[in-house]
Simulated scan of single mutants.
Amino acid sequence: MKKITLLIIGIILSYNSYSLVESNKENELGENLKVDVRMTLPKEIIKYVVYASSDEGKTMEDTLVLPDFVMTQDTTKAGFQGATAPKVYTKRVVGGKVENLSSTEKVTYELTHPDGFMPKVLNDTIKESSTSYRNITGYLPKSTLTQIVNMLGKDYVVSETGSIRKGSSDAVTTPAYVPGAQINMHNNKGILETTTPSYTHAFQIPAEDISKIETFIGSGLPLAKVSLKVSIN
């Protein structure tokens, strides 16, 4: 199983406003009148909850557990197998009850990778109504990818985005190992849905090297400790 930890930032919002009345005031006779200082402290605390669920929130988990992903060039077999990925929900907590966000609240999910494969760019900062499109290799640990490129040799490298490429360039025209499905994460009103639609990369590495990679993968590889940071505006 592939686990992605859910982190929350900026989950408690509050504001304070103060109003003061002058402590001394002179009356018409020139005498000082003592006036009490009054202070008003209206305060609002908004709390949120972020959780993963595969049954519309009946069961809440603090970790997004993805189904097994099959890494193959065969588009009929690549991607999640046998199950739908749980969705990630961000909700308000009002009076102890979980409620939908207001129309003015916007949620942003940010993918983070311990080896830096997911920098803060549009594709990894998933704002309202946007989608992150990624190659599954970008979720693997750099140590695993390094093992693979060392096995292949022939000028193979691990790119800055976690791709296995033949050549140092990270351009889209550089041959790379890209399975027949990618991972998409779409944010719709604070609900993050993960899917694995079919995908064909136009610049593939040689077939014999693809075979070596998929043999190396064998029965599965663990993901790196990828996290989703959540912010609310």
Rank of each mutant, 00 (worst) to 15 (best):
K154W: 02
L33Q: 11
V98Y: 01
I126K: 01
I9C: 15
P141Y: 06
S23T: 11
P86F: 09
I205T: 07
T196G: 01
S19T: 00
S14L: 07
L152F: 03
G82W: 09
V158Q: 03
K127C: 05
M151H: 03
I126W: 09
A52W: 00
P141F: 07
V49R: 12
G30M: 07
L41P: 01
N27I: 00
Q81N: 12
G220F: 12
G162A: 02
V157H: 06
Y51N: 14
S102H: 08
E160V: 01
K2P: 14
V37T: 15
V50T: 10
K127G: 11
L140S: 06
G57E: 10
I12S: 08
T90E: 04
T63W: 02
Q182M: 15
N188M: 12
K189S: 07
T112V: 15
I164V: 01
N135I: 06
S14K: 02
K34W: 07
I183Q: 02
P86L: 02
E99P: 09
E22Q: 11
T72W: 00
A207L: 14
N233L: 09
Y133H: 13
D124F: 15
V226G: 08
E208Y: 10
V172D: 14
A171P: 04
S103Y: 01
I148H: 06
K189I: 05
T146I: 00
A52E: 10
V88D: 08
I164K: 08
G116I: 03
